[in-house]
Design a protein around this nucleic acid. Structure first.
Length: 872
RNA sequence: GCGGGCGUGGUGGAAUGGUAGACACACAGGACUUAAAAUCCUGAGGCCGCAGGCCGUGCGGGUUCGAGUCCCGCCGCCCGUACCA
């Protein structure tokens, strides 16, 4: 019997319209059922969606559709992370207004997402650049300000002296501005900060409670917060070398036990003492300037060659006033961490050792392994960082480092310098306060006013929003808000005199730190409806890229706490479950003229060797490495093209198959075609057997082939449910393949009319289960199949079926039998056989008897329901 | 530099410390066809082979009755590194 091929181009838009007309996916906050909030990280509207989005949203959609079928009231919204630099770059390059560029991109991407058939509640959609959204963000800012969570301080930025603009770290390449090529300078600006460090301990401790977060993300956040228990130690400056008025250098150390191994002090180029010393030392001043040119990026700073410059200043050792140590300015010491000054102990720290060797400073080992000999223990090229015993450390000799730490702490607490204890224990965090000021146009304006008389005045909440002006240009360098005189000019809300608006806008991370809360009541005329927020939050399942493991997730955790303090939500943690998906990667192709897009490449197999050539010119191309899809390498596959030729279901199914969702997936044409064949196969198998299936009611089989069909279906049902719960989509897909393979033969027989009523009923039940299993992944196909069986209501509104426990357990099990850990045979035995029965049966096996050679085995290990190992 | 992760057939991958390679892709053979496509069936980690063995999860060690999985040391790739989002 001939059946028509499944035509996604006709079927998919039809079902999308049905869902939309019936508002199946619009969520009512008051609907019955336990709530379930599934959210994928919202996209930046860069222009078009890419395969990474398809993968991310396909995963979230499986969860949303599955949970809906399980009877939950599901919230699954979508929005746009719409502020940010690319809109300004586009404005400069193409003379298009950032607003226009952004909303056009959103229109394109919304259409693309809709063509994917995602079960999203589009009625709650918003963009962070919508005035309605950023008005509420300004409201939050003012509340935070009032609650003491916001302050201003001096902070450094990368300054491009030619373009007269602040550069992002990624715009600084080898110390030069990306556009101008000019050497980057550092500038100190007064900027706005959120007091995230007030929450350091809480953000750290609460990680333990985030049980449904990947351990790796919790670890990364723990390390990022970087709690350490050390000491503040004040070193007296040697009077003869100290600048006037300077008498001490305060240092933070986690290793006071190594204080007798100290050989130099290193301070940041921005340390006040460095600045004082540089005043009369042009060479030192030049060195400090050079350090500052590296930019503000920590990675650039720390991968740079470790360099220092002597200041001429010396300090006195706390336990020996005669012992003087030189003070260096070093490019690897950060003003932001601790006190901006360290003491270097070369024997116990590789970086300090490299530094000491470079500048000819002494190296005294102070900790050695317990078994080493103090007389011969030397450190030359490799520092010893392990535990052990103290040596060369006077009254600390023989102690463990921990004992020595305590002793130094108590000794230094007794000594005083300038009227204060010379040492104090101190808990320190690596985490820094969150600088949110951006000297850019396309962001949320910070709602404050600067008045010469009143100082910094918050904009009254009733005056919000502070709207971004539309009449701006990018033809001049710098921030358009800064030179917009009429916008800047404003009356002081307190005294009414002429005043100026703040021209900094907020970091776009602020926008994405509370959007998940806004989705719970996007219509509200205040930031949240606390009742709705508390009902929906925390997000049950949040899905996005691992690249957000630290900043976005940590900022959101802080923001939720801040919103709780200011009464907008009632919880601390925004995301109960977190899943980080891998990237979509693709082969790269390169011709004489540069990178070639996969759409223009034909890959052929020549006797096992893959070759690529240009589809039009025929030019031979080099097949390059597999890399993250990016515009620069042109190795992108446009979801539009895939959906147009294969349909959304195929694209979704492929993105869920094969690769574990937390790992990268390689996009290949063969993979898409395989997924597409599966879609066609399911359709064909069901359509060919449609008549006998429609003619019978579903019922589980009791014996023979019918029983086998029902067993296969119920086992798959159980396994797929469990796999989806654990987000093991690739495993769920494998189970579905198995089921389809098992159903193929019976369905073909049914198609030719050669099945008894029992088998027909079992097939009908199995096919309905199959359709429901694929419904979260390939929803359009599932609807088409479901309707073809005569169901009047869509499968997207059907309840998830329940498996019959009797059909998923076997009476007999087959245990592998190992001899000395290597598999040598199998044992089939009753499932409920006792340990003793299993052991007796194993020893009776031929392979075991020939191996034991008549003697009793040394040991028999029976792992119930798993394996048997005989040790001979 | 530092923090985190990953590494298994020709390919993507599967495997609560318990049969390594499920499932799929690609490939080969067969069926159907005038032919092709599509579809269906079969085969397959490598090596030696006659039955049966040996070797195999990036590399080198270790723990264990048993290691892809745990521990130690390397190598390679990826993510983050606070103004990309």
């Amino acid at each position: 019997m001939a059946t028509e091929r499944y035509n996604p181009r006709e079927t998919e838009p039809k079902w999308q319209k049905n869902w939309s007309d019936a508002k199946v996916f619009e969520t009512n906050n008051d609907a019955p059922g336990e709530k379930y909030y599934v959210l994928e990280m919202f996209p930046y509207p860069s222009g078009r969606i890419h395969m990474g989005h398809v993968r991310n949203y396909a995963m979230g959609d499986v969860v949303a559709r599955y949970k809906r079928a399980k009877g939950y009231n599901v919230l699954h919204p979508m929005g746009w992370d719409a502020f940010g630099m690319p809109a300004e770059n586009a404005a400069m390059q193409n003379k298009v207004h950032p607003k226009e560029w952004t909303y056009q991109n959103i229109d394109t991407m919304r259409r693309q997402l809709k063509s994917m058939g995602l079960s999203l509640d589009w009625s709650r959609e918003f963009a962070t650049c919508d005035v309605d959204y950023y008005q509420q963000q300004q409201h939050l800012f003012l509340d935070f300000l009032k609650a003491g969570l916001v302050y201003r301080k001096q902070s450094k930025v990368n300054w491009d002296p030619v373009d007269q603009t602040v550069l992002a770290n990624e715009q600084v390449i080898d110390g030069r501005g990306w556009r101008s090529g000019a050497l980057v300078e550092q500038r100190e600006l007064t900027q706005w900060f959120f007091r995230i460090t007030d929450f350091s301990e809480d953000l750290l401790e609460a990680l333990d409670g985030l049980e449904r977060w990947p351990e790796k993300v919790r670890l990364m956040q723990r390390n990022w917060i970087g709690k350490s228990e050390g000491m503040m130690v004040r070193w007296a400056l040697d009077e003869e070398t100290a600048p006037d008025g300077e008498s001490e250098l305060e240092v933070y150390t986690t290793r006071p036990d190594t204080i007798f191994g100290a050989s130099f002090m290193a301070i940041s180029p921005d340390h006040p003492l460095a600045r004082r010393a540089a005043e009369n030392d042009p060479a030192l001043a030049a060195f400090c300037d050079e350090c500052r040119r590296a930019g503000t990026s920590l990675a650039a700073l720390e991968t740079a060659d470790k360099k220092g410059h002597a200041t001429g200043i010396h300090v006195k050792h706390p336990f020996d006033a005669e012992w003087k140590l030189p003070v260096y300015v070093a490019n690897f010491v950060l003003m932001d961490y601790g006190t901006g000054a360290i003491f270097g102990c070369p024997s116990g720290d590789q970086r300090d050792l490299d530094f000491a060797n470079r500048y000819g400073l002494p190296v005294t080992p102070v900790v050695m392994p317990n078994e080493a000999d103090a007389a011969t223990f030397h450190i030359t090229e490799e520092a010893y960082v392990g535990d052990g015993v103290m040596i060369n450390s006077r009254f600390l000799d023989g102690m463990t480092p921990t004992e020595a730490f305590d002793r130094v702490a108590s000794e230094l607490a007794e000594k005083t310098i300038n009227g204060r204890p010379q040492g104090e224990r101190r808990v320190n965090y690596r985490l820094r306060d969150w600088g949110i000021s951006r000297q850019r146009y396309w962001g949320c304006p910070i709602p404050v006013i600067h008045c010469d008389a009143c100082g910094v005045v918050p904009v009254p909440i009733t005056d919000l929003p502070v709207r971004l002006p539309d009449d701006i240009t990018f033809d001049k360098p710098g921030n358009p808000l800064d030179r917009h005189e009429t916008w800047r000019h404003v009356a002081c809300p307190e005294c009414g005199k002429d005043a100026r608006r703040e021209t900094d806008t907020m970091d776009t991370f602020v926008d994405s730190s509370w959007y998940f809360a806004r989705f719970t009541a996007p219509w509200e005329k205040r930031p949240t409806d606390p009742q709705a927020a508390n009902a929906w939050l925390p997000v049950d399942q949040y899905i996005g890229g691992i690249e957000h493991a630290i900043l976005h997730l940590l900022y959101s955790r802080f923001f939720t706490r801040a919103m709780r303090i200011t009464g907008h939500v009632g919880m601390d943690e925004p995301f109960k479950g977190l899943f980080t998906q891998g990237m979509v990667v693709h082969e790269t192709y390169k011709g004489a003229g540069g990178w070639i897009a996969p759409a223009d490449v034909v890959v052929e197999d020549h006797q096992g060797e893959r070759r690529a050539r240009h589809a039009e010119t025929g030019e031979d191309l080099v097949i390059g490495s597999i890399e993250k899809m990016s515009k620069s390498k042109k190795n992108v596959v446009d979801p539009d093209d895939i959906i147009a030729s294969y349909g959304a279901d195929t694209a979704r199914f492929f993105m869920l198959s094969d690769s574990p969702p937390d790992r990268d997936v390689i996009w290949t044409d063969a993979g898409v075609e395989g997924a597409h064949r599966f879609v066609q196969r399911v359709w064909r198998l069901i359509q060919e057997a449609r008549e006998p299936l429609v003619a019978t009611d579903p019922a589980a089989g009791k014996e023979g082939d019918a029983l086998a069909v029902s067993r296969a279906a119920h086992k798959a049902l159980k396994a797929v449910g469990e796999d989806i719960e654990r987000l093991g989509f690739n495993k769920a897909v494998a189970r579905i393949y198995e089921l389809v393979n098992a159903l193929a033969a019976p369905l073909q027989r049914a198609a030719s009319g050669k099945v008894d009523p029992q088998l027909a009923a079992a097939c009908r039940e199995a096919v309905e289960i199959l359709i429901q299993l694929i419904a979260p992944m390939t929803p359009h196909l599932a609807e088409a199949c479901w309707a073809s069986l005569g169901h009047p209501t869509p499968v997207s509104q059907a309840s998830w079926p329940q498996f019959d426990p009797a059909l998923v357990t076997e009476d007999e099990i087959t245990l592998p039998v190992q001899i000395n850990g290597k598999k040598r045979g199998d044992l089939t035995i009753a499932r409920d056989a006792s340990q003793g029965e299993v052991e007796a049966a194993v020893l009776a096996l031929d392979v075991v008897r020939s191996a034991t050679d008549g003697k009793p085995p040394r040991k028999v290990i029976v792992v119930p329901q798993r394996i048997v190992n005989v040790v001979v």
